[in-house]
Computed example of a mutant assay.
Amino acid sequence: MAVYKIVEAEDDILRDKARLVTKFGKNTERLLDNMKDTMYANKGVGLAAPQIGVSKRVIVVDVGEGPIEFINPEIIDVDGTQTDSEGCLSVPGVLGDVTRALRVEVKGLDRSGNETGVRAEGFLARALQHEIDHLDGILFIDKAKNLRKI
């Protein structure tokens, strides 16, 4: 597959709302595979399509339990709060403390266009929220306190 260059914070595509995916097939499968390759090559735990310059509502996440793919993801339920340090492949060398839901329920579509969902908590819940924010033009630095260079 292919490893793409990560778009950085100054790029306008990261501030736009990504477009819904309505067609499924080889192009969508290739996008998901390339996103995973790019995420792993950059030692990330999540990646949203806008981070590789593609305005589509597609994310991949792997916090060490195997990859999770979502197309047109939506957070449908949240519970609790957690504050922890976050970074982002599109904002290299910066960390900040972000408060997010402790538990989330996410629904969306899989690579074939079938409905799928997950209930997540802790680090996985944080990663899903972070990547879904990207689809709405929100960066972690918009929510972070105590921003610092690493």
Rank of each mutant, 00 (worst) to 15 (best):
K17V: 15
A18I: 08
R19K: 14
V21S: 08
T22C: 00
G25R: 10
G25T: 11
T28C: 09
T28M: 14
E29F: 03
E29H: 13
R30T: 14
D33E: 15
T38V: 12
Y40R: 12
N42L: 00
K43W: 11
K43Y: 13
K43V: 11
A48R: 03
A49M: 09
A49P: 11
A49S: 13
Q51G: 01
I52W: 00
I52Y: 00
V54K: 09
K56D: 11
K56P: 06
V58G: 01
V58Q: 02
V58S: 03
V60D: 04
V61I: 14
D62G: 11
V63Y: 03
V63D: 13
G64D: 11
G64N: 13
E65C: 00
G66R: 10
P67V: 15
F70R: 06
F70A: 06
F70S: 07
I71T: 06
N72H: 08
N72V: 11
P73G: 06
E74C: 00
I75F: 02
I76R: 11
G80R: 10
G80K: 09
Q82S: 13
T83R: 12
D84Q: 12
D84K: 07
E86R: 01
E86G: 03
E86D: 09
G87F: 01
G87N: 06
C88M: 08
C88H: 02
L89Y: 05
L89A: 07
P92G: 07
P92D: 10
G93Y: 02
L95Y: 13
L95V: 09
T99S: 12
R100N: 09
R103F: 00
E105M: 12
V106A: 04
K107E: 15
G108P: 08
R111F: 05
N114D: 14
E115C: 00
T116C: 13
G117M: 02
V118N: 06
V118K: 12
F123L: 15
L124M: 13
A125M: 09
A125N: 09
